[in-house]
């Protein structure tokens, strides 16, 4: 069995890169860093310098057409995510717009500010609606690391990648019918397999392709800078 390490303890290239960037910008995304330290990430290969795109933990299962109003209701959009304290607050509202009767289990428990679900499962057209970047940002700030949906709305997918907040993974099949909220899963984006750790059942994932290294780096700016595409901020 592979060792399970807390994320942020040097196991993830993505987070090392992110911390370095945060330092060089004089900007510490403290809230989201803390959030991510709560999730567990396995290390795929010790000798491999590539970041381990493996997320392990409980999953939260949603259905089709989860729109951005359900992810973050508009009344909370007054929070500006570039302010660290407001980012943390934003995270505490992640997915709070899901109707109570359909989702009696809440993504963030009452009185908590972080989620216990690093993995969110979706059906078709996850993230449809508004272009509010607050949607992937609040999910990332709450501690979510990856969404695995059947398909995505365009702007949400792009915002996941450009902010580096979430891996927007696509599944080969309709996982929202096969998994239940609370199931322990491992999302391995290196081998493109999602495993239900309880039943041992595995499901295929579509490769993230060129989006993966951008999320690894912590978003489009960090990626572009690491690649020498743009200069470091003055």
């Amino acid at each position: 069995m592979q060792p399970v390490l807390p994320q942020g303890a040097g196991c993830s290239g993505r987070h090392a890169a992110k911390q370095q960037l945060a330092h060089s910008f004089g900007l510490i995304k403290a809230a989201s860093q803390r959030a991510r330290q709560q999730t567990l990430v396995t290390r795929a290969a010790v000798s491999n310098k590539k970041p381990a795109r493996v997320v392990r933990g409980k999953c939260f299962v949603t259905r089709d057409n989860i729109d951005t109003d359900q992810i973050i209701p508009a009344e909370h959009l007054t929070l500006v995510p570039s302010n660290p304290d407001e980012l943390e607050q934003l995270g505490s509202f992640a997915l709070c717009g899901l109707p109570q009767e359909l989702y009696p289990e809440r993504f963030i428990k009452q009185g908590e500010i972080k989620t216990e679900y690093p993995v969110v499962i979706g059906g078709n057209n996850f993230g449809c609606g508004s272009s509010r970047e607050h949607a992937p940002v609040c999910m990332g700030a709450s501690g979510a690391r990856v969404v695995v949906a059947q398909s995505y709305a365009r702007i949400f997918f792009r915002n996941c990648v450009s902010t580096g907040e979430l891996y927007p993974c696509e599944a080969d099949e309709r996982l929202c019918d096969s998994l239940q909220t609370g199931d322990e899963v491992e999302v391995n984006m290196e081998t493109n397999v999602l495993t239900n750790l309880g039943s041992g059942k595995t499901f295929g994932l579509k490769p993230l392709g060129e989006a993966a290294p951008v999320v690894d780096a912590g978003g489009i700016f960090a990626y572009a800078r690491a690649q020498g595409m743009i200069k470091t901020a003055a």
Partner: peptide, 10 residues
């Protein structure tokens, strides 16, 4: 077309 804040910042 609509975009997110990061793309707008770019």
């Amino acid at each position: 077309s609509g975009i997110g804040n990061t793309d707008a910042g770019f």
